[in-house]
Nucleic acid binder design. Structure first.
Lengths: 368, 368
DNA sequence: CTGAAAGCGCTAACAT
DNA sequence: ATGTTAGCGCTTTCAG
């Protein structure tokens, strides 16, 4: 190996060097650093030698043998919805505590580069011998799931449910919020506020979250004899803006938007482009409760997805499946409260269910 | 190795298996997959056998030999400022194209867990044999820089300048925007708008961006005989809110906020808490031009940090340094335009410099 | 408890 | 161009 670079590649300290300096065998060094049995005496000698030499075990070599890279592959569709950076940050911390690290792949790009990309990306992860894969809001093809299974790599779906072509859950662990229940809750609340002409900006119907939220909302309104006007938002800001205009042209007085990110676009159109009063002229409800929803500039009533608990569940599922058991992990749905802020009117009659009323101005909140 | 798990760990196809099936030597297989010389005939045989077996080379084993993991360690302080998710997304794509992957570490946590965390995190990266480290808005201690250098791992600083205790750049590649120049530009613009009672919400003064922006702004105003009122924002939303209140109590009619994320907080306080008109009562300018700055709800005049070009420069620096050369990489400062939106008044006299005037309402823009 | 030896799956000289 | 032979740095039997 030519030393073409005098500054770099200086000290490649191996366990052998440490062993020599400590006057023990190389395997003794290995034992000390892998936490196997070793006498206090050797441990001390090895530690001293290692510190003096600045030795750190090579994780690659270790992984090659143990078959455990302690790397979790994370695929995430996009990062412009604040929900995901938040989730990523929490996941990163939680895994770090457990000694795992995240190799990240952003599938979507500017505008959902779609399924194709996801596949290549998963292949790269498999090549890197990740111990498991977390797919955040990314759908996996049946073929891909099969490939992961064959490679022995567990997959956990975050914020996305999935059912394979056989109608089963494909044995995939999947953590979502209770999207159907949440959407119903929103429908109930809007009804209680006395709205009768209701609109809905749908999330991407190719996703379970999009479908479930729409389903829960429409079903519940249907039970009250109301059919909402629907427009596609596709989880995209520009689509949501267009949808808002169309909905207002039809004269709705309340809109449920498929996620907060789109709801902000709707609010911008309503307040600043059309000069309407929210909630006076029209009420708006979102879904997620990202931090921005609480900002005075938006002050959005929304259904909270409990990111923290969803991440906890994800890590738990991950550890369980990594711990050797390949128990069929039931899909977990974690419910969250409706957070009522200034984008909706006061209910005309008492409402039930998990509700938090936020008073942004006074910076306080009380649970109803 | 006990087969305690009948479903997992099924197929561990190695190059040896492929060689056997293809009727060639194991090294032939290696050559085909590592792009070395191989005849068309063997290549075909090997490919066929590999496909049939579902073989994929083990990157870990490869890395152990070549000494190249093709993994880039990314340390980022926090993700709640939209600037970083955006940068991350672009970096991820750019590196993926080059065959590199990102191992991510989020240093900050909820509230800057500070330097200590960074160190441990860098150690973990080194353990994983990352080929290089990108530190985004994270300061590195001299000791840490030295450790990386000793380990032969190049470091690139993104959006952070750094000077070691000897007053040199520590030989680190560092990509930033022209923070001093940008802040001066903002000062000039505010002056041209006729403001004389000016406030400044400082970014974290422990960071080069915070210091440089403050310095450029204060110097330029000073040259015009104006001393701005200053408050610390620390790049934190809550601090920025408090700063806004204090500044208004002192009666300023224009505020330069150290970044967009804090500027949104300032705008919320001004418009919704104090009921003020922006820019009628007070003008506000931010720094970054994150997507949200263009949203009608904020419509913020701000200095654009050209994320795309900054990431391009980062990748370029990375590839250069990975390509074997350890040329001292000069610090790169990339300038951006002042994007004028509705949070500032019309200038009273002509202004010079790189300026873009956005008309959010009509969704168009023209370059002055 | 410790050392010697045998690999993990692959690449990189060497020969042929 | 292909096969043979050493290892990369470490963990893990297996003896002692």
């Amino acid at each position: 190996m030519a030393d073409r670079n005098p500054e770099r590649e200086r000290t490649k300290v191996t366990s052998l060097d440490v062993a020599a300096k400590a006057g023990v065998s190389q395997s003794a060094v290995s034992r000390v650093f892998s936490g196997a049995s070793a006498s206090a005496a050797t441990t001390a000698k090895v530690r001293a030698a290692a510190d003096a030499l600045g030795y750190r075990p090579n994780v690659l070599a270790r992984s090659l043998i143990t078959g455990q890279s302690r790397i979790i592959g994370l695929v995430v569709a996009y990062l412009d919805n604040q929900f995901y950076p938040d989730a990523l940050e929490r996941l990163s911390h939680a895994l770090q505590v457990q000694g795992y690290h995240i190799m990240i792949f952003i599938a979507g790009g500017a505008q959902g580069a779609a399924e194709g990309t996801g596949d290549r990306v998963i292949d790269r992860m498999l090549d890197h011998q990740v111990d498991a894969i977390v797919a955040a809001s990314v759908g996996l093809s049946d073929a891909l799931v099969a490939r992961c299974r064959r490679a022995g790599i567990p997959v956990v779906l975050f914020n996305r449910g999935q059912i394979d072509s056989c109608g089963t859950r494909a044995g995939l662990a999947q953590i979502t919020s209770d999207n159907i229940g949440g959407a119903r809750h929103i429908a109930d609340y809007l009804l209680a506020c006395g709205h009768a002409s209701i609109g809905h900006v749908r999330g991407w119907q190719g996703s379970s979250t999009g479908r479930d939220r729409t389903m829960g909302f429409v079903d519940r309104l249907g039970a009250a004899g109301i059919v909402p006007r629907q427009e596609d938002g596709e989880y995209r800001r520009d689509h949501a803006e267009a949808a808002a205009r169309k909905l207002m042209a039809r004269g709705v007085d309340a809109i449920f938007v498929g996620n907060d990110h789109m709801a902000f676009a709707v609010l911008d159109v309503l307040r600043h482009e059309m000069g309407l009063d929210v909630p006076g002229d029209v009420a708006v409800v979102g879904y997620d409760d990202v931090p921005m929803a609480a900002w005075a500039g938006y002050d959005l009533t929304t259904l909270r997805q409990p990111v923290g608990r969803m991440i906890d569940a994800t890590v738990e599922a991950l550890l369980a499946v990594l711990g050797g058991g390949d128990q069929e992990f039931a899909a977990q749905e974690i419910g969250g409260p409706l957070v009522v802020r200034g984008s909706t009117r006061m209910p005309l009659r008492p409402v039930t269910g998990d509700i938090i009323r936020h008073n942004t101005k006074r910076n306080g909140h009380e649970r109803l």
